[in-house]
């Protein structure tokens, strides 16, 4: 299967959001996204995988297969779960290098910018950071193995 690039998925999401007239539609979309999140295996739903800095709890886990990352996650808040799934949709099946160099400007463009501010406690910022940290860890590990 041809994998879309980070940018292509970002464009796709921006396009989807452009059909929404108001904030309600956006939130309803996020609620739907939340329901289809690649679910984290219960064995990884542990304290250690909790992301700090969120008002709701968010667990994140990642694996590397054939040089590509796969994230799974869960949250006890649905909107947070939706936002997590948006990020996962963009990042899954990408290489650590591509994730590390991406800027994820789509978050601004779809009007979720307000959630990027570190004072917002939904932890979008924290999630992004944690995902990049996973990418960095995989990159370092792969390079050391060479």
């Amino acid at each position: 299967m041809e994998v879309k690039s980070i940018q292509e998925t970002e464009e796709e999401i921006i396009n989807e959001f452009s059909y929404f007239d108001d904030w309600m539609d956006k939130y309803n979309f996020l609620i739907e996204m939340g329901k289809s999140i690649p679910s984290i295996d219960t064995q990884y739903k542990v304290e250690n995988n909790l992301i700090k800095g969120c008002q709701s709890r968010v667990w994140l886990h990642a694996t590397l297969e054939d040089g590509r990352i796969n994230f799974t996650a869960d949250s006890d808040a649905v909107i947070t779960k939706g936002i997590a799934n948006l990020l996962i949709r963009v990042m899954n099946q990408q290489t650590p290098d591509d994730i590390l160099s991406a800027e994820f400007t789509f978050v601004d463009k779809i009007g979720l910018k307000e959630h990027l501010s570190p004072t917002r406690s939904n932890g979008l910022m924290a999630m992004l950071k944690q995902m990049k940290l996973y990418a960095l860890a995989f990159k370092t590990k792969t390079e050391q193995a060479k």
């Binding site: 904030w23 939130y27 709701s56 909107i79 939904n122």
Partner: peptide, 13 residues
Amino acid sequence: DIHPYDAGMIIDR
């Protein structure tokens, strides 16, 4: 069973 954070986001809007 709605998470207070989910509720708060909508009430805010």
